Simulated scan of single mutants.
Amino acid sequence: MNATRQLLQHRQPMIRFLGKRTTPTKIDHTPQAHPASPSSSLPESFASYRKKAQQHGPLNQQSQYATGSIGGKSGASLGPVEAGKGIYFDRSELPARFQRTPWSQAEIEAIESGGASLFA
């Protein structure tokens, strides 16, 4: 215990602070364009920005299903949902060789016993 106390008494931090913290008196909070932006000007409004913005394609495109908002039409009016050729919605629709195999009674017992039944 005493050896540890002596080791900690001579410890010096590796960071050296130069002086007391001071907050700048004048900070400019006016909006400015990011230094790395392609244009050095800010948009006039958010609506004008959104008309030109791109995120995985233009944001101002109208969807063929929605009329200006999400959920503009009911699901029934969109028609039936059917999988295309080679596309399956559930694993049970796949051919038999790709479906889940049923659990055997030995596997169920091994899981319920935590594996101890395999060695008993």
Rank of each mutant, 00 (worst) to 15 (best):
K85Q: 15
A76K: 11
S48W: 04
L18T: 15
H29F: 14
P95A: 05
F98H: 13
K26C: 03
G86N: 15
N2I: 00
H10S: 12
H10V: 10
T4P: 03
E109M: 12
Y88Q: 07
A36S: 11
P43I: 04
H34S: 12
S104K: 13
D90P: 01
H29C: 14
K26N: 10
K51H: 14
E112R: 05
A106V: 13
P58Q: 08
G68E: 05
E44D: 05
S117R: 13
K26S: 12
N60S: 15
R11H: 10
E109L: 10
D28K: 10
S39M: 12
H29A: 13
D28W: 08
L118E: 02
E82F: 07
E109H: 07
F89I: 01
I108V: 03
L42M: 04
E93I: 01
R5Y: 10
P80S: 08
S37D: 11
S48I: 10
S41A: 09
Q12L: 10
S39Q: 13
M1I: 10
R50T: 08
A76N: 00
H29D: 15
S48E: 15
I27M: 10
A76T: 02
K73H: 11
I15N: 02
D90R: 12
R97F: 12
S69N: 05
N2W: 00
P31E: 06
K52M: 01
S63W: 02
G115W: 04
G114I: 06
A47P: 01
S92D: 12
G115M: 02
D90S: 08
L42P: 02
K52L: 07
L8C: 07
A76L: 05
A36Q: 09
I27C: 06
I87F: 14
L94F: 10
L94R: 11
G72E: 04
Q54A: 04
E112T: 03
L118T: 08
G19H: 04
G84H: 11
Q99N: 00
R11V: 15
K20P: 01
E109N: 12
K52Q: 11
L94Q: 09
E112M: 11
F119A: 01
L59T: 13
P80K: 05
T25R: 15
A47C: 01
H34I: 04
K73R: 12
